[in-house]
């Protein structure tokens, strides 16, 4: 047996090289406070730089980024693609359905084949938790892996673009109360947001939802649990609404979209319970009239479209920090 191929734990420590240099970006869990701010600082530079100037600083020129999407997601894939292209990388999109790997080729075979095509970075989305960590652990040492969502586990770039948006609007995290509302059980976004918010020393992090959608012992991740939306929204500075998947009705987790909308949907009345200058966020795509009303989604407090724009800057920042060497300032 090749020693490299020994099954075992997939330690988070492989994300960081000495000096807190990012090797991979797999999860927010375990990353230091300062590094999270470094990522946001770097994103800030990309936001303020006009697009044409960015192309003059092609930090990833000559590098090949492969988007490995084992699960469908046009939007996320496109933002990664734009981010990589703006940094001068060659981008290859591979739509690999899990079924095709189930036909015989193992995940490792797929990875080996792509390595042989001179990839430098894999952007991975997969329906199973831990897949990005798995690929990072067993890929050739020169390959970096960026997690674009693994099962219910993590979606670290989404969480970081959310943090970046909060920081832009609110400044410091310490005095803030942040509420995450809806289907926390199935949400990798929520898990990554919780890790990011607690690492950034946010004053209070709340999760709000019916018991069927709140996973066991989540309070041990450092959050307060609310089952009543009105109570949970009181005096918060930031409301993050999660997307509700239609298939949750089939699993007996919820009776109907209508009941969910009534009890856990964000509307203008409920928004009154939050701080007067609160902001409303959503990782998208939104279900209007289910978890969020159109008036709120398109209202003055909504920063949903800014999140999308920031998504490109944050993904550029992470890619640049992984492949461009040190965590210092941009070119």
């Amino acid at each position: 047996m090749h020693p490299h191929l020994k099954p075992g734990p997939l330690p988070l420590s492989m994300q960081l090289a000495p000096g807190n240099q990012l090797n991979h970006f797999l999860t927010v869990e375990g990353l230091p406070y300062q590094l999270l701010h470094d990522i946001m600082d770097r994103a800030e530079q990309f936001v303020t730089l006009p697009a044409k100037q960015q192309k003059k600083a092609p930090l990833l020129r000559g590098k090949t980024v492969m988007n490995l999407f084992f699960e469908n997601s046009t939007r996320t894939r496109v933002t990664f693609e734009i981010a990589a292209q703006r940094l001068g990388a060659d981008v290859i999109n591979l739509d690999i359905r899990t079924s095709s790997t189930a036909k015989g080729e193992t995940l490792l075979d797929t990875v080996r084949n792509l390595e042989a095509m001179n990839a430098d970075m894999f952007v991975v989305r997969h329906e199973h938790a831990g897949t990005a960590q798995f690929i990072a652990r067993y890929s050739a040492p020169h390959i970096s892996v960026l997690n674009a969502g693994d099962g219910r586990h993590a979606h670290p770039t989404q969480a970081m673009l959310d943090m970046f948006t909060i920081r832009q609007k609110k400044g410091a995290f310490e005095p803030l109360k942040v509420a995450i509302v809806g289907d926390v059980l199935h949400s990798r976004v929520a898990r990554s947001q919780i890790h990011a918010l607690t690492t950034l020393l946010t004053g209070e992090v709340r999760v709000i939802g019916p018991k069927t959608l709140i996973p066991a012992h989540i309070e041990r991740m450092g959050v307060k649990v609310f089952h009543n939306l009105d109570e949970g929204l009181r005096d918060v500075d930031v409301v993050i609404m999660l997307r509700l998947q239609r298939e949750r009705m089939a699993g007996a987790l919820l009776p109907s979209e209508r009941e969910f909308a009534k009890l856990y949907g964000l509307n203008e009345q409920r928004l009154e319970l939050t701080k007067p200058d609160s902001i409303v966020m959503h990782p998208g795509p939104i279900n209007r009239g289910v978890e969020i009303d159109t008036e709120v989604a398109d209202g003055v407090r909504s920063v949903i479209l800014e999140q999308v724009t920031n998504g490109i800057a944050v993904r550029m920042a992470v890619m640049a920090m992984i492949m461009g060497g040190n965590t210092g300032s941009a070119a």
Binding site: A129, G151, R152, A154, R191, P215, A216, R220, M221
Partner: peptide, 15 residues
Amino acid sequence: HEGEVSTRLGLPAIP
């Protein structure tokens, strides 16, 4: 097992 660790890892759990 359904508990603290399954919540953290996002793995489907058995109570």
